[in-house]
């Protein structure tokens, strides 16, 4: 073809041929519907991916050909395109797919069908909307990577809250939780108690069994105690061998009862390490939030004071503090 002598007609034909070629090589599905939602045209992308045959589908209703489509909802969407003359959209983020088409990332992805972004465009013919063009973009990659990213982010968020050794909450997260529970207890006028405990003679234990033995004890004790708690209790590693439990909506009586159980369970649960059974014990301080505590830190202080008394009184026992009045009530 000599471009110098191209007539308008030839140029137009050439352009048409070219555009139909491009349409068929696009990595986007194109589906044209008439105002009754019958299929007028589609491109190779859809033919290949849907494994349907052109002859079987042209002129047929789209809901008949693609029976997986949510008819009521999609009809309304398509009607809005016809009636308002505006485009409409459907994103994989809200609705992973409309058309059940296989995707090109077979094994690694967790969705069965190609994730899609669909666009519904009004097509005017002499001032009237005669057709709707549906563009179907493959969003499986984006969907897949977004999923992985979200998983990684969730993991990171979790990791930033967890103590690596014991897998319970770290001090930072634990303290933030206490701050929140403190505020909640104040706002709703609810009880709030705190248990703080310390492994007895941890230094000797470390000297005797080595740091690996010490670590093993910390890990096992965390597990044992974790099993004694309610879901709403917040268990964290406060320092080296010091732990703490926040007990929302719990009075000092309930807290003492739990503390006693912790104390006994730990003492009665030998920890296997190499050839030996390690018997560990804990000293526990318990406190309840009182009217006078203007800050969450004073609750920690009261529990810590009680813990100090428990240590001084010979370890492997529970002591409660926070308020002399409360203590008197408890002992009475």
């Amino acid at each position: 073809m000599n471009p110098g002598v191209l007539t308008d007609e030839v140029t137009k034909k050439f352009a048409e041929k070219l555009s139909s070629k491009i349409t068929d090589q696009l990595n986007t599905g194109i589906l044209i519907l008439d105002t009754d939602f019958n299929i007028v045209m589609w491109n190779s992308f859809l033919e290949v991916h849907s494994t349907k045959v052109s002859n079987d589908i042209i002129g047929k209703n789209v809901f008949e050909v693609f029976s997986e489509l949510p008819e009521r909802w999609l009809s309304r969407k398509l009607s809005s395109v016809l009636q308002l003359g505006t485009p409409n959209f459907c994103s994989w983020e809200q609705r992973r797919h409309l058309f059940e088409l296989p995707h090109t990332r077979p094994i690694t992805t967790d969705c069965e069908f190609m994730a899609q972004n669909c666009t519904f465009l009004p097509m005017e013919e002499s001032g009237k909307i005669e057709y709707i063009s549906i563009l179907i973009e493959d969003a499986t990659d984006v969907c897949h990577y977004q999923g992985q990213l979200q998983k990684a982010l969730d993991k990171l968020a979790l990791m930033s809250r967890i103590d690596g050794l014991t897998q319970i909450y770290n001090r930072k997260h634990w303290q933030e939780s206490l701050e929140q529970e403190f505020a909640k207890a104040r706002r709703h006028d609810k009880a709030l108690s705190l248990i703080m405990f310390d492994l007895d003679n941890f230094k000797q234990l470390n000297d005797h069994y080595g740091h690996q033995g010490g670590d093993q004890v910390l890990i096992e004790i965390s597990k044992t105690i974790g099993n004694l708690l309610r879901v709403e209790d917040v268990f964290g590693r406060y320092g080296g061998e010091e732990f703490a439990v926040i007990l929302p909506e719990t009075s000092i009586l309930g807290a003492i009862e739990l503390a006693e159980r912790i104390c006994q369970t730990v003492a009665n649960t030998p920890i296997k390490f190499k050839e030996s059974n390690i018997i560990a014990t804990v000293s526990i301080g318990v406190a309840q939030l009182t009217e006078r505590d203007s800050h969450f830190e004073s609750l920690i202080m009261h529990a810590d004071d009680a813990l100090y008394i428990a240590k001084n009184n010979g370890r492997n026992q529970v002591c409660s503090g926070s308020d002399n009045e409360l203590l008197k009530q408890v002992s009475a």
Partner: peptide
């Protein structure tokens, strides 16, 4: 919309898109 038909997010996106595109058209 039907209550369980689609998520709140999707409804909100739908109606927003209709508002924006009708207005700007």
């Amino acid at each position: 919309y039907e209550p369980d038909e689609l998520s709140k997010d999707e409804q909100l996106i739908d109606i927003s898109s209709i508002l924006t595109t009708t207005f700007l058209n």
